[in-house]
Design a protein around this nucleic acid. Structure first.
Length: 416
DNA sequence: CACTGAAGATCATCCACATGCGCAA
DNA sequence: GGTTGCGCATGTGGATGATCTTCAG
């Protein structure tokens, strides 16, 4: 990752794509991400103009510079003047927006030398960008993009979520729970208030926390939660397995260095990398009322969607949806991550010593678990099962009553 | 490295019929 | 609104063949 676009190698890189782990100029961003439906779902954000390697999380209005958390903190975190700096959160986007679209959200984007023209205006229909003109405490307008592949935008929902105080802005600068979304607060102590799981920078220990989460990630716990899957959606648990299998390990444990949760309001853990399973186009759900249809139609993508509404929150994971309060989620690592306000993603931290072994171990355990697990078929009608259990068969097929049979479940005898 | 065949894994299909469900009376 | 009767669709398990995946040569 560097100053130059990883794709064309000519233009200055402006956008960071976490899925591709690439820094791209706007033109290449559009080219690359208009290639297919999957690439359109890549979450991107602006690149830090200081280190040119990390995704920017805040835009400093006065300095007219976009910074990653690390640079933002390094440059201003310890300065008392920080409180006077006005910051604008920079959020992730996906789809294939034109420069004009982007500039409508990030007016400063036009300042970039490589802000070229759009190459896929026709694709705009697949994307929705809405401006969330929520006034921040420091008076700047916060632009928010919340997009998903289906074009269903959760901006309003997100606003509600944000207002509820439960949802923490996906990729915005992390805020302590006591001062939500207030970037303009007085200088923070280096030892304080950085959310545990937040690690936009390279020196944040959060990744270790995340690693611990992986470490403790227990599929058995997942099993318990998935028990409700069929009840809710009428789909057997086998599909839940598909969710994991097709979604891929990377979906479950985070693609490469990605966190498990893509809280970019897409709700879905980025699983676009998998092939077969994703034939069923994922319809990430994030909204007040994700329809059952949409949930079922997305059976192949692990969905981790967290919504909060009127003090109630609804967590769905791979079709699992449960109404409960936030406290309930703290029983498992994934949900706690949500509640901890982890940003939408943690970019690869090349400097981070995060042991890939952790992930490998997690994957290994997952594979073993998967190997030994038995996804028992859930019987919807016990009476029918009882009937089938005693029905005579010929080569596994049911036979008419009175006909010859080669298998009788009751007597294990043959009639011939 | 590419190819091939074997072995194993996975999946879809079939069967009969009691039951669930919608609809009309 | 509640009940009854009718017809159709559904779902149930084991065996089997087709298809896919993996791996050794």
């Amino acid at each position: 990752m560097g100053y130059i676009c990883d794709f064309c190698g000519e233009q200055r890189s402006m956008v960071y794509c976490r899925s591709d782990a690439a820094c791209l100029c706007l033109s290449c961003d559009q080219i690359v991400h208009s290639a297919n439906a999957l690439s359109k779902r890549h979450s991107r954000t602006l690149l830090c103009e200081r280190c040119n390697s990390q995704p920017a999380l805040v835009r400093r209005a006065e300095e007219r510079i976009s910074l990653c958390q690390n640079c933002d903190w390094t440059g201003y975190g310890s300065s008392t003047s920080a409180s006077t700096h006005k910051r604008q959160t920079i959020n992730c986007y996906s789809g294939c927006p034109s420069v004009s679209e982007l500039s409508s959200i990030w007016p400063f984007i036009l300042d970039f030398p490589s802000g070229g023209g759009s190459t896929c205006e026709q694709e705009l229909g697949l994307m929705s960008i809405a401006e969330n003109s929520t006034k921040n405490t420091w008076g700047l307008t916060e632009n928010t993009i919340c997009h998903n592949a289906s074009g269903i935008v959760g901006v309003n929902d997100r606003c509600e979520i944000a207002k509820s105080g439960v949802w923490h802005e996906a990729s915005s600068v992390p805020e302590s729970s006591s001062v939500p979304n207030n970037l303009d607060q007085p200088t923070r102590s280096p030892n304080s208030s950085l959310p545990k799981l937040y690690c936009p920078g390279t020196k944040c220990p959060a990744r270790y926390e995340g690693a611990d989460l992986y470490e403790d990630f227990n599929m058995a716990e997942m099993d318990l939660n998935l028990e409700n899957y069929e009840e809710l959606f009428g789909v057997t648990l086998n599909n839940s397995e598909e969710l994991f299998e097709n979604g891929g390990i990377d979906s479950l444990f985070g693609t490469k260095d990605m966190p498990i949760v893509d809280s970019n309001c897409q709700g879905a853990v980025a699983a676009e990398g998998s092939s077969v399973g994703l034939v069923n186009t994922i319809q990430p759900t994030c909204g007040n009322a994700p329809s059952t249809d949409s949930m079922i139609s997305t059976k192949t993508e692990p969905i981790l969607c967290f919504t909060a509404r009127q003090g109630q929150s609804s967590l769905s994971f791979s079709g699992l949806t449960g109404e409960s309060n936030a406290g309930d989620y703290q029983d498992c690592g994934t949900s706690s991550m949500l509640l901890m306000g982890e940003p939408s993603w943690c970019p690869p931290c090349p400097e981070s010593p995060l042991p890939s072994a952790n992930r490998s171990d997690a994957v290994k355990r997952y594979m073993e678990k998967k190997k030994t697990r038995k996804f028992e078929k859930k019987v919807r009608y016990v009476s029918r099962k009882a009937r089938a259990d005693v029905r005579r068969r010929v080569k596994g097929r049911f036979v008419k009553a009175g006909d010859a049979y080669d298998y009788d479940p009751l007597s294990q005898t043959r009639s011939f």
